[in-house]
Amino acid sequence: MNNLNSMPELPILNDQPTGRRSFLKACGATLGLAAWATALRPLTEWTEDLNVDEFLQKHYRELTADQKQAVFKRLEAETKENYGADVHITDSQPIPGVQFAYALNLSICIGCRKCAEACHIENNHDRTTNNSYIRVFEMQMGGIDFEKGNATYDHPVPQPGKFYMPVQCQQCENPPCVTACPIEATWQEDDGIVVVDYNWCIGCRYCEAACPYHARRFNWEKPEIPAEEINPQQGYLSNRIRPQGVMEKCTFCLHRTREGRMPACLEACPTGARVFGNVLDPDSEIRWVIENKRTFVLKEELGTKPRFYYFFDE
């Protein structure tokens, strides 16, 4: 009784004026699809660089030890293929009982930008943009007013009436960038360092909007570095060459600092304006500075709780 097996009628075939219109529609649809395929052709050139393993790679924190090794091997091979350099990718882990903090003495910083340069080299930054995680501001004496600051000065330093304020990731204890990220591609490690999984980030740049310190950078295109300039000692979460289209940031050089070494920016500082160490160690230099100098943090009112302190000599 029910005509349950009846096929739905096909209006394109059955509706008047039928034949000709349907044929034209089919032609139009075919042409349309061909046009879309042509328009999107650049995508195929792009996907040549991608591979299934990378596409399916899990979040860093869900990778097993074996999977990690496979990923590192693949990344090393890719670096060899794309950049012609033999690199070694490591995976330094936070040291138990260590929380990093940084302090910067504004009285003796001379604005030489050696720290920014060291960061550029250490962290395999794109050579074209001269990128660095550190931006040094020439500030007007008499206040800490970035409105009067200038990060692109290009004259002999130090200038009278000025002081110099390098700004980099403040490794906030309450990081707005981590809260913002929709996919947990950036998180805070046990030693306080905020890291990015460059293979998980989708490049929405919400973290860059959320950061109050202009600490994050985006890879607007594929970084360019000559093979001979590549720093081969690379950390997966830190200075390995970043892919196009993802965020990156200062990691306090975790591939160095988690091995007990100083960050590159500190080593480059000629005046010793930079103090780094384990804030949980009561005998560390960083603790001495925090306890004995009148330190301050940038934008304290935002409640981000930076681990980066500034101070002046009395």
Binding site: G260, R261, M262, E267, T271, G272, F276, G277, E285, V289
Partner: peptide, 19 residues
């Protein structure tokens, strides 16, 4: 400040048990 590592450039290890 120098004696407390807060003045004067340096290189090497923050963790002197390692280097």
């Amino acid at each position: 400040d120098y004696e407390h590592g807060a003045h004067g450039g340096m290189t090497g290890y923050w963790d002197l048990t390692r280097g």
